[in-house]
Design a protein around this nucleic acid. Structure first.
Lengths: 143, 143
DNA sequence: CCTCCACCTTCCCACAATGGTAAGGTCAAC
DNA sequence: GTTGACCTTACCATTGTGGGAAGGTGGAGG
């Protein structure tokens, strides 16, 4: 199966399949005489696994760990569950933070008339410092 | 005031202040004879505005728009409120998506013993395709 | 056989925002 | 005068993804 077919079947773009291979997330694909990558049912299963874990918001590093656990018959289910629960806790924290932000934004918007007048408490308020300390960066969330 | 002072006072790293200037988000800072950037109270206010809007999760592009609205005395408060509400709707959508993902993850984790045994329904389940269609990318969320 | 189109290959560029680091200039205090 | 804390610019890395160029391949229709 060509990379295009594999992509269509798994929802992972050809671009990303090549990228995953290049960074070692996936093993090197088999090649046909013409140099084209060739995918079989097992490869498709792996790609589906990747697609699904990505959809669930795991980073490529985490996906890599999950793939390793997947193929390791001797691993304990504890390790897998641990990874999943860490991820859940991460999501919970992020949702909490986003909710706090929404609350603030709603309060700001509430006091703004939103009409033709130029008076706007949102901007006035944004100019005042509220939070302090250096900001922390956070990982991207995907849908 | 040196960039270091400005940074300490606003919580925006010196690195980022220079970056914001380089991409045109901020106007070129005044320079002293030795080439050092020099910040006054008005500059500090702008930096605080940026810091605060960034904390609320607005992208630099949105911050730029807000800054423009801030200095535009003739704009209607409707425009500002619109921007804020679009952002709130965006947050709501992302939270909904993250919650859906959490639900799935919790269900998966629930069926996994998480002990020394290797049997693990999480991995078995991840191998089966669930969602379909190409994946969409999403903007990073910051705290 | 030739041409055309769809596919494949590799390689490089871009994005958003941020941090790191190196190589050098400056300034104040001791 | 030296030391150390600051400033300057410039380049590289990150995370995951898309876009595009330049070229090879393969099959279908003329």
């Amino acid at each position: 199966m060509n990379i295009g077919q594999a992509s269509a079947r798994t929802g992972v773009s050809a671009k990303m399949i090549r990228y995953y291979e290049s960074i070692g997330l996936l093993p090197s694909a088999a090649r046909r005489a013409n140099g084209y990558r060739d995918y079989g049912d097992q490869d498709i299963a792996v790609l589906q696994f990747v697609r699904r874990t990505r959809d669930l918001g795991f980073s490529l590093e985490e996906v890599s760990a999950l793939l390793a656990l997947w193929s390791d018959k001797g691993r304990s289910s504890r390790e897998v569950k641990q990874l999943a629960e860490t991820h859940i806790a991460d999501l919970e924290r992020r949702i909490r933070e986003m909710r706090a932000v929404m609350k603030t934004l709603r309060e700001l918007a509430q006091h703004c008339h939103g009409d033709e007048r130029s008076e706007c408490p949102i901007l006035d308020d944004l100019a005042k410092p509220r939070t302090q300390g250096p900001r922390r960066t956070q990982r991207a969330v995907r849908a």
